[in-house]
Design a protein around this nucleic acid. Structure first.
Length: 427
DNA sequence: CTACGGCATTGCACGGAGCC
DNA sequence: GGCTCCGTGCAATGCCGTAG
């Protein structure tokens, strides 16, 4: 059987590992190992590039071919820009810093920021709705005001006709409402998120992303290892690992992954751990959330048969011409000790092994066939549903592997024939 | 009353088709 | 080969309808 893609050797049966989280027994797919492997290799690529090594920086065909963000959000291109040009430049006053960060993320596009910066004095003290509106109106000639990292919704509640007018209105309203001060007084990021989410147009996910940016400023020291919003991409990634049983307990499952990370690094023989800097090995909760989303894209290519909402991933990797010169918020770096670093890997390695389901029942029972497909080598493969397992555990099996279950094949061919007759009504 | 699903809406990058 | 046109997809949110 030829393996034309990066498809891993296919297990003949569903994997028997499972974990118990929040009282739920969740089966574990190969994407679990892919997650830890992806995080280690993606961050190793970053460090190889930063060290000035020549391309290619990886032997992994998928990481070489497709574009993925960093394990650590702060190293992504736009975050680096925000840190250098939005946060570190200009007044460090609470309202001014927050204003600049919120203005940037309103459009999330470097060229828009630079347009505004070239025309206006980007301070809250001198903010003028109409002046900003005019500049954006002129910048809108090619329709390129918004970046594409997140889909930004123009809240109609702010009286404008164009999206950017509504976003300017939202920004002005948040500042006039004293949002920076409210956030500084919030006890934790979760509380801050509920404050930001109370504004129309700011959902939990966008609020969380904004708070991560604000947390790079000197004014905030929210822990990024205690709480996170599990975005849609990360939730999808979790489902590819643990099945649909993760619904509703995403945060707890992410905490489980954070707490057991050292066990997984060791189990997989990964010694070159991802690191924010040399004083801090491993990943925090927010990095995990970020990585789960990317790993889900990786899994679309590597495990196309583990189904998800989206089937393909097309963004190709293009090597950047500029050498990497990455910066971190000053307060994050470990000069003179560990205090002040927001990411605390305080969770000790947890040596509890994955709970193995008893091997007493090694045979998996086929419930029914879901689909069939001709394979290039000739012959037929069947997508098989297992008794007691959800659709994401469906496996493609060759005809020969179904020899022990002739009644399943018979049932399938009967149902298929019935279905084939139906569309004829249209003729 | 809440919770949840489905759908509309949003801006724009990307990639393929079709044209010169 | 280079250009435009157009469809698709995205780390989202709001709203409305239905189920409980």
């Amino acid at each position: 059987m030829a393996a034309p893609t990066h498809d891993a050797p296919r297990p003949r049966k569903p994997r028997k590992e499972s974990v118990e989280i929040e009282g739920r027994v969740l089966p574990v797919s190969p994407v679990l190992d892919a997650l830890f492997y992806w995080m280690a290799e993606r961050d190793a690529i970053r460090r190889r590039k930063a060290a000035g090594e020549a391309a290619p920086w990886t032997n992994d065909p998928i990481l070489a071919e497709y574009k993925f963000t960093n394990v650590f959000r702060v190293f992504d291109r736009t975050s680096q820009y925000v840190l250098r040009n939005v946060i570190n430049r200009g007044s460090q006053d609470l309202y001014e810093t927050c204003f600049r960060v919120m203005l940037f993320r309103s459009f999330n596009r470097i060229s828009t920021w630079e347009l505004l910066d070239s025309e206006l004095d980007l301070t809250w003290a001198n903010f003028n709705y109409n002046a900003y509106r005019r500049v954006l109106q002129e910048g809108d000639v090619d329709g390129a005001i918004y970046g594409h990292a997140y889909i930004l919704i123009a809240p109609n509640a702010y009286g404008g006709r164009k999206s950017y007018e509504n976003h300017l209105g939202l920004l002005q309203h948040m500042l006039e409402d004293g949002l920076p001060e409210k956030l500084v007084n919030a006890a934790c990021m979760k509380e801050a998120e509920s404050i930001v989410s109370s504004y129309k147009g700011m959902g939990p996910f966008l609020s969380f992303q904004l708070l991560l940016d604000l947390n790079m400023t000197p004014h905030f020291q929210f822990s990024e290892d205690e709480w996170a919003i599990c975005g849609p991409g990360a939730a999808e990634g979790l489902q590819k690992i643990f099945g649909c049983g993760v619904k509703g307990i995403e945060l707890e499952v992410m905490k489980y992954l954070r707490d057991t990370q050292y066990k997984h690094w060791e189990r997989l023989g990964i010694t070159d751990l991802p690191r924010l800097h040399d004083g801090r090995l491993g990943i925090a909760l927010v990095d995990l959330e970020h990585s789960l989303c990317e790993c889900e894209k990786y899994a679309r290519v590597k495990y196309p048969r583990i189904s998800g909402k989206r089937k393909t991933y097309k963004r190709l990797y293009l090597a950047t011409e500029l050498p990497l010169d990455l910066v971190l918020p000053e307060k994050w770096t470990p000069r003179g000790g560990t205090s002040g670093t927001p990411i605390s890997i305080s969770h000790l390695p947890d040596n509890e092994p994955l709970t193995e389901l008893e091997d007493s029942d090694p045979e998996y029972e086929i419930s029914h066939i879901v689909r069939e497909a001709l394979i290039p080598e000739g012959g037929m493969e069947y997508l098989v549903r297992w008794v007691g397992w959800t659709p994401e555990w469906d496996l493609w099996l060759a005809e020969s592997e179904l020899r022990d279950a002739p009644e399943v094949l018979k049932d399938w061919s009967e149902r298929r024939n019935k279905r084939k007759r139906r569309p004829k009504k249209n003729w």
